[in-house]
Design a protein around this nucleic acid. Structure first.
Lengths: 397, 397
DNA sequence: CGGCTAGGTGAATCTGACA
DNA sequence: ATGTCAGATTCACCTAGCC
């Protein structure tokens, strides 16, 4: 479990990944070399770039990365490409060297991530003003396509003790797809809107810091990791941009917030972590997580995902008859239903959408919500009949 | 450096400004060559880099820059759900051939700014995710020292019409000093705190868009400039980081919000603007500004709307857990809390309001007062949890 | 004058299935 | 790759006009 080379043989538990970007339901043991199997729900201890380079290409659905932030403190985690340590610096040349080595490091891990991302996978990176501009630029240079920047507004930030600056009360996340052509990325628009009082979820999120019981403490009572992120933050990202069963890669796993939340939410994870101390804390933490029930994780069907119903089927089912006259909500326009499922508005014949657009002089129109039928003196929107057909179709399996 | 040949010859010119970073109050005409005099409260029409290179070095106290964002919009125009067309920013001045050319442009104007900044001057830049990472990286590369990144949270952002991303509800400002050694920059910590109900001013600011009477309109009734910034945003930056009498340089002056607010607050300005149309509108606008009295130059307390709390935040905060069962006051209906902040009533999944209305057969319902949780055998209305979160959010607006 | 409704608008990298 | 077309998609303000 601890070794980066650990490969667990139970491939059935591990859903091999097809090239189309979806987990195949049938395991294909024997067809794929062992090295190509995904080490799901494991922590790969060691250098994250080496670890990622051993994973098969196009194999993960999402990446969450919380890379080292700090450029100026000589952080031990920041290494030059030649593996020498970057020292604390105070003159311009060293500053440049420090930025350059951080940029190089950033390009390297982002490149490794990009290779293992499926075509429609997305990547999240969190950072502060110390590093986020470097990361964002590198992302764009490598061909990632930024979808949003998200502001994590901290409920309880550390005050600025010296009174020389504004209280640093937020961090920034970048959400990006693999490329500008990745149009099919996962985004649970409707679920987010439903959890936000039926308003679109905005790019500014208000979430408390990770404190209290959630914060991992060592035997000495000190926090195990200096920058443990709140589970609520990870939960919102994974609920937004992944489906149950999706594979989430975290190249800077730390104490495993990504893994804990992934397990809780029925996602799979792959973590990379250089420090065995953190990895061990993460393992214990994740073992204790009890996943939510499948029912709680069901993705509610969205309008977009519902089966298409031809208007002709509404006529065939008898909800409307050839010759029936439809109108709009304000009874400004009239159209006659034809037996072939088109509408006749006198000057033209066409689909419910086409003629709806035509009579209004608009470039487009959703005929299902525009046209109404007269029923007992009241107007009934024809989308009602589509809904009835869909209910029947659902019952039929 | 844009032009290595640009050298300010006359050291006496720099005496126009003292080393403490304050403009001298007495003009010293005759001692300074004409070319070295600061064109105070003027708009320099033309290329901003050339204009800045003609200014004496170390002569301005503050820079506010609203550069082109380099939006990379597709060819197709974006339609609202009502089929009206979104008025996109498609002006020529926002077109760049590549990231490289945008970076080059950014380095050039930042370099020119840096030369004219006094040692303790600070610079503000505003941008969106399209360009702010490029700008931030360039800043750091050129030796600027980032003091804060500030999030302008828009009260009324444009929605995401296609439901494909989070509502882009903020822009980012970077506040930077000329170098890491610039320790004596201006920051009115106490005034800001006093204007913020005695709480430190945070890095996230909630300010409405520039609309209504404040928005400059042409004779045709159309907006003069596509991206006019709100005066409240400029006011907070100038009150934070300049003193009365300070010189504020704006290399992308547009319709002169920086100048109007500078005059209002008793600061001097220098504007650069390439388009005479914008410059002329700015002149007329600034002429009409009546400066505030000195006493009025304190930070006006901002009225705060009661913060909206997503139901998802109640779940994230742990007041309710995924799987918890809610009911109404008379225990007629049951609903299960989902991890995404929606409720599941078996036949449907949706917001607390939607499913509350659904189970009652009503057109609408306030879910906050309808749904209750069972706590120690008693029912607790979920609005209780919203109130708790609002108490936490109070400080943060 | 007030209340109500209808309409307009803001820095936007904004569809997807199928032929 | 390109074209066609079904059909899904908006929040907080502000102004104008009507009663």
């Amino acid at each position: 479990m601890a070794s980066p080379r650990t490969v667990v043989a139970d491939a059935a538990a591990r859903k091999l990944v097809s090239r189309t970007g979806r987990a195949s339901s049938a395991p294909r043991l024997g067809l794929v070399p062992a090295v190509q199997r995904l080490p799901l729900d494991e922590i790969l201890v060691g250098d994250c770039i080496e670890a990622m380079n051993r994973l098969p290409a196009s194999s993960v659905d999402c990446v969450f990365a919380d890379p080292p932030y700090n450029l100026q403190l000589g952080d031990a985690s920041l290494m030059r490409p030649d593996q020498s340590r970057v020292d604390a610096v105070d003159d311009d040349w060293d500053k440049f060297a420090s930025f350059a080595s951080y940029d190089s490091f950033t390009r390297d891990w982002l490149t490794a991530c990009r290779r293992v991302m499926k075509p429609n996978a997305t990547l999240w990176v969190i950072g502060s003003y110390h590093n986020i501009f470097r990361v964002g630029s590198a992302l764009q240079d490598l061909g990632f396509w930024i979808l949003n920047d998200i502001v994590w507004r901290k409920a309880n930030p550390m005050p600025n003790f010296r009174g020389k600056r504004f209280t640093n009360a937020h961090e920034t996340l970048i959400w990006a797809s693999r490329s500008a052509e990745s149009k099919g990325y996962t985004f649970h628009y409707d679920a987010l809107k439903g959890g936000n009082e039926d308003l679109q979820m905005r790019s500014d999120w208000f979430i408390p810091l990770c404190t209290g019981d959630e914060r991992l403490k060592g035997a000495d009572g000190n926090k195990v990791h200096p920058t443990q992120k709140p589970e609520a933050l990870l939960a919102r990202t994974l609920l937004s941009a992944t489906n149950p069963g999706d594979v989430v890669l975290d190249p800077f796993f730390g104490t495993g917030t990504t893994g804990a939340v992934a397990k809780l939410l029925g996602r799979r994870f792959i973590g990379c972590e250089r420090e065995e101390v953190y990895a061990e804390a993460a393992r214990r933490r994740i073992d204790a997580v009890v996943p939510l029930s499948r029912a709680a994780l069901l993705v509610a069907p969205t309008k977009r995902a519902e089966p298409r119903v031809p208007f002709l089927s509404v006529v065939e089912a008898g909800h409307l008859k050839a010759g029936d006259v439809l109108t709009d909500e304000r009874r400004r326009f009239k159209a006659t239903v034809r037996p072939d499922g088109q509408l006749d508005v006198g000057v033209a014949i066409g689909s419910i959408h086409k003629v709806g657009a035509l009579v209004q002089g608009l470039p487009a129109c959703n005929g299902w919500t525009f046209w109404h039928a007269e029923r007992a003196g009241k107007l009934v929107v024809i989308d009602t009949y589509r809904a009835k057909l869909r209910a029947v179709m659902g019952a039929a399996g």
